[in-house]
Design a protein around this nucleic acid. Sequence first.
DNA 1: AGGCAATCTAGGCAATGACAAGTTTGGCTT
DNA 2: AAGCCAAACTTGTCATTGCCTAGATTGCCT
Lengths: 201, 201
Amino acid sequence: MPPAKKPAARPYHHGDLRRAVLTAALDVIAVDGPAALSLRDLARRAGVSHAAPAHHFKDRTGLLTAIAAEGFGLLAATLADASDLKDAGVRYVRFAREHPAHFQVMFTPQLLRADDLELATARALAADALRTAVSAVRPDDLGIDARLAGVAAWSLAHGFATLLLGHNLDGPVGDKDPEEVFRTLAAMLFRTGGKPDGPRS
Amino acid sequence: MPPAKKPAARPYHHGDLRRAVLTAALDVIAVDGPAALSLRDLARRAGVSHAAPAHHFKDRTGLLTAIAAEGFGLLAATLADASDLKDAGVRYVRFAREHPAHFQVMFTPQLLRADDLELATARALAADALRTAVSAVRPDDLGIDARLAGVAAWSLAHGFATLLLGHNLDGPVGDKDPEEVFRTLAAMLFRTGGKPDGPRS
DNA sequence: AGGCAATCTAGGCAATGACAAGTTTGGCTT
DNA sequence: AAGCCAAACTTGTCATTGCCTAGATTGCCT
């Protein structure tokens, strides 16, 4: 018998337990929210002992903090190649839909270790990307300063994404493509026509 | 001696345990989030046995559902006497700041019993109030239909409120009055001058 | 005064997070 | 190539919690 037949007979070392736990956690959170997360359950899913995850994340808060940091990294990358502020908003909404678990955890500070270095770094990265997108707005476009334009755009995108994920827009938006709807909203905020809309006085 | 000297010698019946538990729960949630909520802890705070709260709320989800329902009721009342859509937005933000615990729970569906009747009723009430405010907008004001205007206003207000509560605007907004800042944002969305801003082409 | 239902207490069970030792293993040094 | 070390993982344990069941107390209504 070939001893090299290293079967699924769970080797002592999982190989990539950290990623496995993260992925499983994202699944759970996307469906049932962060409150439903159980380290022991994640350990079972990964086929390891109940205390194994703690070695990678220290504790529950550590796991959630790692998820948030990953999320801010992904968001920063997504926003990095936005063409303008409106595009950044569209990307923001898309990110929330494609990574609902990350998004939820990123903006629930109570669940995170605020002083975590990785988290702070990733968050700063995302903030920079947002600032860059904001700076592309012509300041005289609306007679307002860029900082407020950024807050407005962020609020609109964040609110839309949040309400969308919470199924609060199922009625009004219905089966329409959310990104397209958001484009219309963004066009309302920044007058620059975004949708071939009706009569412009 | 007046026998009415009802001392703090904990009477068998609390008197208003339901309200006491709700209030304590709101305190905890406002500080540490819904995840930190413990029925046994609330019972201790109220000075009753560990299973007493369950009689009023059935279980943890029941308590949170009651909070959400109460929140939607309060929000509906707040929005009811809004003068216009922008005012409704300002009131929405104010509500979130004055009732952060309610607000947080209301928009975390994973924590709630979706089929609860009281919750559905209160939510419908709030939705009606919002619809009323939206209907006050002149449809031709922006060349867009009222439904989208409502979604835009709601998204902006909800996003701003959410980011505010999560301390994500501490930098940009600083120590400025949040309501005043929001008024400016709303003015950007609905061109009708809210702030003595620049030239209107 | 009697009785009833709501309110609250007491006890118990399974599950969880966190901690403390031990065990196995891959890889690096010598 | 032998040995060793630190990381990865396991096993065991404890306090806490949610929730269930059964029983005690009390206000209220007739």
